[in-house]
Amino acid sequence: MGLAKRIIPCLDVIGNTTVKGVNFSGMVPLGSPVEMATLYCRQGADELVFLDIEASVKNTGTIFKVIEEVAGVVDVPFTVGGGISEIGHVEKLMESGADKISLNSAALLRPSLISDIARRFGSQCVVVAVDYMLLNGTPMVMSHGGKKKTDRKLIQWVKEIIDSGAGEILLTAIDRDGTGAGFDIENVSRISGLAGIPVIASGGAGSPVDFLDVFTRGNADAALAAGIFHRNELKISELKEFLKDNNLEIRL
């Protein structure tokens, strides 16, 4: 008896449009975030992640209205990320209806941001997103939407994140993103074994079996995917039926 495994659709948003790329580039427009959020909630999404993917580059800040609209149709937890680099951003996002925020590049530049936000708003609202790539066989952390290399090793950074008081880790294998080649089970499993906090696996979902694997072999608490849901290759409701039939704890 335990918590249900969570299925989390992710909306990568530019302006007022959901987009999707491969390996974090070549973005194709897919539709309205509000409509997609409504649909996914109806299909049984356990949570929704909204990533304002250009904000870490542009710092526009005009996204709050869209976030508020999406928050208005979501009846499950709602996480927002993209360009968050100070407490003030978190305040504005919470005020716009976000339940959790997802940090990435700014946390790499200033790890104390994690503990600052956790102290102020509670650990439960701080998700730290970690994007990584295999470089010479070693998983290395990338920043700025996968565009910049860092000198941090995945495991070392994850340990630091946990110690800083993060509530959850969103782990994305850039090599797998948009490929449908399956989750990076090996690294998800290593991180899940390490973390006393929930691990959300992301990158590579291509079939229901991939989700089953990441939960049973990877030990993930949640799995996040975008393209496979956006392109309607797999309905969240069907996926959850499949996982339930395979004896996982699933909210139907």
Binding site: L3, A4, R6, D46, P77, Q124, G167, G196, D221
Partner: peptide, 28 residues
């Protein structure tokens, strides 16, 4: 894992708050 973050089941539901709520439903 603390905090408990996620969907868990509720049992033995009593009283008007749980009218028409499914026994062992998941809540966040």
């Amino acid at each position: 894992k603390v905090p408990q973050i996620g969907w868990n089941r509720i049992y033995n539901l009593k009283g008007p708050l749980f009218k028409n709520v499914t026994e062992s439903a998941y809540v966040y």
